[in-house]
Each structure stands twice: as structure tokens, then as C-alpha cells.
Simulated assay, not measured.
Amino acid sequence: MKVECKISPDYKEPYAVLYINRMTHGIAGIISLLEKEEMDSLTLIGAKEKKAFFLKPEEIVLVRTEGREIVCYDKLKNRYMLDKPLYELENILDIQFVRISKSSIINIHQINHVEAGFNGTMEVVMKNGVTDYISRNFRKVFKERLGLK
């Protein structure tokens, strides 16, 4: 891959353009790293009632797939549609978020409580009342992130 970097005080903020013939996991990772560079000013855009809302990560309680849509819930239980895939959101969101299943990511600072569920799952109830399940495959990582054994 050829890489070109131009440095000038005339540039107000970094801007990258990639010319690719197909998306690969490596390129997706590079894009995620570049986007993380702007983490302090990270704001997601969520759609609700044909309006665009700017959401800061600390306002987000849960992100998950619902059917074919990627949605998030905020502290007031408002539901927004997002335009980024879940794997990309997982890479963008910071350390306060943890993946709990193939289809959900939660803000660990917004957990109200966790209960044992069926088939080795655990139900997590968020402070805003939204519930989801921590699958067996993600339980170990979840417990480690909370400092549990």
C-alpha cells in the first residue's frame, strides 16, 4: 500500500482519503484508529422522527441491533437509529462500553443491576429501564471489565 502524508500549518484539522478497490478488515481497523484519534470530540449522529441528533458517548446507555437497524438508547430511554455498523461503533466507543452479545454493546456506567437468566445468560437492566442479555460467549469479558471473577 502506498501512503502519502502532507504536513502544513494551513490544515486546520486532519483529513484522510483512502482509494481502495474493496474493504478489508485491516483497512476497517485503520479507519477505526483514525476515527479514534478524534475521540475527545466524538459525537454520534442518531436519527429520530426524521431529525438528526448529536449524541455524546456518555449519554448513550445501550447500542444494539433491532431487526436490520442499529439503534441506541440514551439516559431518558429515547431511541435513535445509527448509520454505523455495530463492529465500527464498538471500535469507536471508549473504555466505558463493553460488548455483551453479538448484537449489543452497553455503557458499564449505566448498569442498574444484573440477574441470572436462562441457558447460562445474564440479564442486564440499565438505569433507564432498558434490558438486554449478556450471552455466555461474552460473559467472561463482561465480568473482567467489571472486576468480577
Rank of each mutant, 00 (worst) to 15 (best):
Arg99Pro: 01
Lys56Val: 02
Leu86Met: 13
Lys102Ala: 06
Asn91Leu: 07
Ile92His: 01
Asn78Tyr: 11
Glu88Ile: 01
Ile92Ala: 04
Asn112Asp: 15
Glu59Pro: 03
Leu55Pro: 12
Met39Val: 14
His113Gln: 13
Phe97Trp: 04
Asn112His: 12
Asp74Gln: 11
Ala116Cys: 09
Ile100Leu: 10
Ala52Asn: 13
Ala47Gln: 06
Ile111Trp: 00
Tyr73Asn: 09
Val98Ser: 08
Phe53Gly: 01
Ile95Arg: 06
Lys75Val: 08
His109Met: 09
Gly67Glu: 06
Lys50His: 14
Phe53Tyr: 15
Ile108Ser: 02
Leu55Thr: 05
Lys56Thr: 11
Ala52Pro: 00
Asn112Thr: 00
Met81Cys: 10
Asn91Val: 01
Asp74Thr: 08
Ile106Cys: 03
Leu76Tyr: 08
Ser104Ile: 00
Val114Ile: 15
Ile105Asp: 02
Arg68Ile: 13
Tyr73Trp: 13
Lys102Trp: 01
Val63Ile: 15
Ile106Gly: 02
Asn119Phe: 09
Gly67Phe: 07
Lys84Arg: 14
Thr43Leu: 10
Asp74Gly: 04
Leu42Ser: 10
Arg79Val: 05
Ser41Lys: 14
Tyr80Cys: 03
Cys72Pro: 06
Thr43Phe: 07
Tyr80Met: 03
Val98Trp: 02
Glu58Ala: 05
Lys56Arg: 14
Asn119Gln: 14
Asn91Phe: 01
Gln96Thr: 05
Ile70Asp: 00
His113Arg: 14
Val71Tyr: 02
